[in-house]
Measured scan of single mutants.
Amino acid sequence: EPEARKIVEKLINNGLSPEDVKRWAEKNNNPEVKKAAEEYQKR
């Protein structure tokens, strides 16, 4: 999901860690963003 990846990169560029992004995604019920954050961590 390229859109989710863009969101993850934007949040990380704004100073969030991938863990923060995953928590944000869970709080906002956004499994695509959570998955993208996990993939981002593996890179």
Rank of each mutant, 00 (worst) to 15 (best):
L11F: 09
L16H: 06
K6I: 11
D20T: 03
E9P: 00
V8N: 00
Y40G: 02
N13D: 10
P2Y: 15
E38P: 01
N13E: 14
N29H: 08
K22G: 07
K27P: 01
E26F: 00
D20C: 09
N14W: 09
L16E: 03
K6S: 12
A25I: 02
P31Q: 11
N13Q: 14
V8D: 00
R5E: 09
E19N: 07
N13Y: 08
E19T: 06
R43P: 08
E9L: 06
P18H: 06
L11Q: 03
K35W: 06
P2K: 15
L11P: 00
V8G: 00
G15M: 05
P2E: 15
Q41F: 10
E9C: 12
K22D: 05
K42S: 10
Q41R: 06
E26K: 00
K42Q: 12
K35S: 08
S17R: 05
S17D: 09
N14T: 11
G15E: 06
A37T: 04
K6L: 12
Y40E: 05
E39P: 00
E19S: 07
K10H: 14
N30G: 02
K10D: 13
K42R: 11
A4F: 07
V8E: 00
R23D: 13
K34W: 13
E19R: 05
K6P: 01
L11A: 05
P2A: 15
E9W: 03
N30S: 10
K35D: 07
E39I: 05
I7C: 11
Q41Y: 09
K27N: 12
N28T: 13
N28P: 01
N14E: 15
V8F: 13
L16M: 15
E1S: 13
N14I: 13
K6R: 14
D20R: 02
A4H: 05
R23C: 09
P31K: 07
E3N: 12
K10M: 14
P18W: 13
N30Q: 14
V33A: 05
V21N: 03
E39H: 05
L16I: 07
A25P: 04
A25N: 00
A4L: 06
N13R: 14
A4C: 07
P18G: 03
N14C: 14
V21Q: 01
R5N: 10
Q41G: 08
V8H: 01
E38W: 01
N30A: 14
E9R: 10
L11Y: 04
Y40M: 10
P2V: 15
I7W: 06
N28A: 09
S17V: 01
A36Q: 07
E32V: 08
D20H: 05
E39L: 03
E26P: 01
A37I: 13
V8R: 00
A37F: 06
A25S: 02
A36D: 02
N13H: 12
E3I: 11
L11R: 01
E1Y: 13
K22P: 04
K35H: 08
E26N: 00
S17Q: 05
I12P: 00
Y40T: 04
K6T: 11
N30W: 15
K10V: 11
I7T: 06
K27V: 13
G15T: 03
N13K: 14
I12T: 02
P2I: 15
A36G: 02
I7S: 02
E3S: 13
L11D: 00
R43S: 14
I12N: 00
G15W: 03
A4M: 05
K35N: 07
L16R: 03
W24A: 05
K42T: 10
W24K: 03
P18R: 02
P31H: 10
E9M: 06
R23W: 07
N29W: 03
Y40S: 04
K35M: 08
A4K: 02
P2Q: 15
N14Y: 08
W24Q: 04
P18K: 04
K27T: 11
G15Q: 05
E26G: 00
A36T: 04
A37Q: 02
V21C: 06
K27E: 15
A4I: 07
K10G: 10
P31G: 06
N28K: 04
Y40H: 07
E26D: 12
E9K: 08
E32D: 10
V33K: 00
R5G: 07
P2R: 15
E32W: 06
R5K: 11
P18D: 03
K10Q: 14
K6Q: 12
E9H: 09
W24M: 06
K22W: 09
V8M: 10
V33E: 01
R43K: 13
S17M: 04
E3C: 12
I12L: 12
N29D: 10
K27S: 12
Q41V: 09
